[in-house]
Simulated scan of single mutants.
Amino acid sequence: MANHQFTEAEIAAVYRVIAERRDMRHFLPTPVSAETLAKILQAAHQAPSVGLMQPWRFIRITDRTLRHRIHELVDEERKHTAQAIGEYDNTARMAEFLRLKVEGILDCGELLVAALCNHREEHIFGRRTLPEMDIASVSCAIQNMWLAARAEGLGMGWVSIFDPKKLGALLNTPADAKPIAILCIGHVSTFYNEPMLVETGWRKARPLTDMVMENQWSTHE
């Protein structure tokens, strides 16, 4: 039987990059080389997608004024999110959220917007009963970018605090396309030892044992 396993060093590198991936918010202004950015985007394009629909579209933001307008949209939604947290939880939690750094849009070396493609209704294979598999496919592409960026020594942050209709209008996307992620990529002074929301005390990560069931749904609450 053929041995398709990677070498021990290669296997260790795969698990290491997964373990050390972080959703980054703090960046240095150092530019990202065009070669490295191309490699990261190629990693995204090698992601699996249901029915091979490849629903990911990436818009690179190079205009500084546009970057500031995107930041304004995010800041607007940040305030709405804080208000919703206050109504759902309490005002102390709302204030705690407002103290969090939720993005690095104005600081990162590269800014991209990931969007779902238009004409998605034409892709039926794998989506007839699960149309949200288009989002799952784009998420796989973004995860590939995260891992590739970390392997290259770069940080990446996924910003989802924005109104997709307003961002779509700003970027002139087709009506049936949908922005789902603002991606900050860049050099960092250090990577967080743990996810930032854990380090800041916002939330504790639950163990794997709480997520794995056998034969039927069971609760660990």
Results as ranks from 00 to 15, higher is better:
residue 2 A to L: 14
residue 3 N to Y: 10
residue 4 H to I: 06
residue 4 H to D: 09
residue 5 Q to F: 13
residue 5 Q to S: 12
residue 5 Q to W: 12
residue 8 E to T: 03
residue 9 A to S: 13
residue 12 A to T: 09
residue 14 V to K: 11
residue 17 V to T: 09
residue 19 A to N: 12
residue 21 R to T: 07
residue 22 R to E: 04
residue 25 R to I: 10
residue 26 H to E: 12
residue 29 P to T: 07
residue 29 P to L: 10
residue 29 P to D: 04
residue 32 V to A: 00
residue 33 S to I: 11
residue 38 A to H: 10
residue 38 A to L: 10
residue 43 A to E: 04
residue 44 A to F: 01
residue 46 Q to I: 01
residue 49 S to M: 03
residue 49 S to A: 00
residue 50 V to H: 01
residue 53 M to V: 10
residue 53 M to N: 11
residue 54 Q to E: 09
residue 57 R to N: 08
residue 57 R to P: 07
residue 58 F to W: 06
residue 61 I to M: 03
residue 62 T to I: 09
residue 63 D to K: 05
residue 64 R to E: 15
residue 71 H to F: 14
residue 71 H to L: 15
residue 72 E to L: 14
residue 72 E to S: 15
residue 72 E to C: 13
residue 76 E to P: 07
residue 78 R to I: 04
residue 79 K to Y: 09
residue 84 A to H: 11
residue 89 D to N: 13
residue 91 T to P: 08
residue 92 A to Q: 15
residue 93 R to I: 12
residue 97 F to H: 09
residue 98 L to F: 08
residue 102 V to A: 12
residue 102 V to D: 12
residue 104 G to L: 05
residue 105 I to G: 07
residue 106 L to K: 08
residue 108 C to S: 03
residue 110 E to Y: 00
residue 110 E to G: 01
residue 113 V to F: 07
residue 113 V to M: 10
residue 115 A to T: 12
residue 117 C to D: 12
residue 118 N to S: 14
residue 121 E to T: 13
residue 122 E to C: 02
residue 124 I to G: 00
residue 125 F to N: 11
residue 129 T to A: 11
residue 131 P to M: 01
residue 132 E to C: 01
residue 133 M to R: 14
residue 134 D to R: 02
residue 136 A to S: 09
residue 137 S to V: 03
residue 138 V to A: 06
residue 139 S to V: 05
residue 139 S to E: 03
residue 139 S to D: 07
residue 140 C to M: 10
residue 147 L to H: 03
residue 148 A to H: 03
residue 151 A to C: 03
residue 154 L to N: 03
residue 156 M to A: 12
residue 158 W to Q: 08
residue 158 W to Y: 11
residue 163 D to C: 06
residue 166 K to I: 05
residue 167 L to I: 02
residue 168 G to I: 11
residue 172 N to I: 03
residue 176 D to S: 06
residue 176 D to V: 03
residue 178 K to R: 15
residue 179 P to V: 05
residue 181 A to D: 08
residue 184 C to G: 02
residue 185 I to D: 01
residue 190 T to Y: 15
residue 192 Y to M: 13
residue 193 N to K: 15
residue 193 N to Q: 15
residue 196 M to Y: 15
residue 197 L to E: 10
residue 199 E to W: 05
residue 200 T to V: 08
residue 201 G to A: 04
residue 201 G to C: 04
residue 203 R to M: 12
residue 208 L to I: 14
residue 209 T to H: 11
residue 209 T to D: 08
residue 211 M to C: 12
residue 212 V to Y: 00
residue 213 M to N: 12
residue 215 N to I: 09
residue 215 N to R: 14
residue 217 W to A: 10
residue 217 W to E: 00
residue 218 S to A: 07
